[in-house]
Amino acid sequence: MAEQKSNWFREHSLFIVLFALFVVFLVGMAITGFEVYNEEQVEHGASPIGFLQYLTTGAFGEATFENWESEFLQMGAYVVLTIWLVQKGSSESKPIDEPMEQDKDPRTVDVGPRTPWPVRRGGFVLVLYENSLAILFFVLFFLSFALHAVTGAAAYSEEQAQHGLPGVTPWEYLGTAQFWFESMQNWQSEFLAVAAIVLGSVYLRQRGSPESKPVHAPNDETGA
């Protein structure tokens, strides 16, 4: 029994560690953001608020969702763009002019009991399933985008009120330069990071990582 438990953690260790790091940094962001928020409250002559109340503020929501939005946009765009676009020599690219197993039409393969149910079912279910990864990321992007607009409008309106100015609705907030500045300052960094690994993996290596080509592979060898 102990051996099975150890194997399960090993088999899922990448997700477990990544999710644990997400929780650690989210908690760290909440704690430090809470301190910054109360410092600003005192500077404006307002009373500090409790930690749980801070988690319901537009300031915390906006800081959270503007970052989630950019991450999901990056991953969704990367999943879709790598269907058609290539980078010679990159481990992040499909091989140039060579068919891959991922390109195969699932309607032409032999199905078995371990074949995913949507493939065996076919029809519209299969159409959704064969595009489900991109759909997931873009649904999460638009959800985060909407939550960014709602919480950002609340934070923006609170700041406006401190200066005796009227607040805005989420729809009105979408038309402000502030909203698009918050979004694009994250979007540009996400696509820069992806571009860096796409090009960097042409010439650089990391032994043991599936994101890298084998150390001995030629620079112009394309694909994993």
Rank of each mutant, 00 (worst) to 15 (best):
Q4K: 15
R10I: 03
L14H: 12
F15S: 15
I16Y: 14
I16H: 13
L18F: 14
F19S: 06
A20L: 13
V27W: 13
V27I: 15
G28I: 02
A30N: 08
G33N: 08
F34Y: 15
F34W: 14
Y37H: 09
N38Q: 08
Q41M: 11
V42A: 11
E43N: 08
G45N: 08
S47I: 03
I49D: 04
Q53E: 14
T57P: 00
A59L: 00
F60M: 02
G61C: 03
E62R: 07
T64M: 13
T64R: 08
W68M: 05
E69D: 05
E69T: 03
L73M: 06
Q74C: 09
L85V: 02
V86L: 03
V86T: 14
Q87D: 01
S90T: 04
S91E: 02
S91Y: 04
P95E: 03
P95W: 07
I96E: 07
M100H: 11
M100A: 11
E101S: 11
Q102F: 07
D105S: 13
D105T: 04
D105N: 15
T108I: 05
T108D: 09
G112D: 14
P113E: 15
R114S: 12
W117L: 14
W117I: 01
V119T: 12
R121K: 15
R121I: 04
R121P: 00
G122V: 03
F124E: 04
V125Q: 11
L126N: 04
V127D: 14
Y129V: 02
N131W: 11
S132F: 13
L133R: 15
F138H: 03
V139P: 04
V139M: 15
L140K: 01
F141K: 02
F141Y: 15
L143C: 04
S144Q: 05
S144L: 02
S144G: 04
G152T: 10
G152R: 09
A153Q: 09
S157A: 11
E158M: 05
E158I: 01
E158R: 09
G164W: 11
P170Y: 13
Y173S: 06
L174E: 06
G175W: 11
A177W: 11
Q178K: 08
W180N: 01
Q188E: 04
L192D: 07
A196Q: 03
A196E: 06
V198D: 01
V198A: 09
L199D: 04
R205H: 05
R207Y: 10
S209T: 01
E211Q: 11
V215S: 15
V215R: 07
H216D: 15
H216V: 05
N219M: 07
E221A: 14
E221S: 10
E221R: 12
